[in-house]
């Protein structure tokens, strides 16, 4: 069976054409410009993973939200569950870049981390 994928790992967005055997193992891969193409396809077939970016509410800061992402990608089907967890959080400023907001979110062995610095609002 031949399947087409667009690799999302980097902005090249390689169009991968993959030949799969009966066990969904890759027998031929075309279109990848780096090694990660194969890994991506493998993952995409068995357990697609994505990172997400969103925001967490901050009180008393120089901005109302701090942007966050996950330390690493999570299974695609967990995205909205993780979103629900993130929506529950309210932080007190200051927040530092890289600060872990939720450790091991939903037991997925991934952390929610701040991607921005929020200072305390100066009065």
């Amino acid at each position: 069976m031949i399947k087409e994928f667009i690799c999302v790992l980097c902005p090249n967005g390689c169009e991968l054409s993959v030949e799969l055997d009966d066990n969904n193992n890759i027998s031929k891969l075309e279109g990848a410009t780096c090694q990660r193409g194969g890994e991506y396809v493998q993952q995409e077939i068995f357990a697609p993973q994505r990172n997400i970016a969103t925001s967490v509410k901050v009180v008393g800061g120089n901005m109302p939200l701090v942007s966050v992402r996950l330390s690493e990608a999570i299974p695609k089907e967990k995205i909205f569950d993780v979103m629900d967890e993130i929506k529950k959080i309210k932080l007190e400023a200051p927040v530092s870049l890289g600060q872990v907001i939720i450790k091991n979110v939903l037991g997925l062995e991934r952390d929610v981390i701040a991607t921005k610095q929020v200072l305390r609002e100066q009065f």
Partner: peptide
């Protein structure tokens, strides 16, 4: 970049996937 909170920045310049705010930082 401050509002581009999604990732995918920096793969060419820093060889890492960063969010916009991290790239700016």
């Amino acid at each position: 970049l401050r509002q581009c909170i999604h990732d995918g920045f920096g793969l060419t310049r820093f060889k890492e996937a960063l969010s916009g705010p991290e790239y700016a930082a």
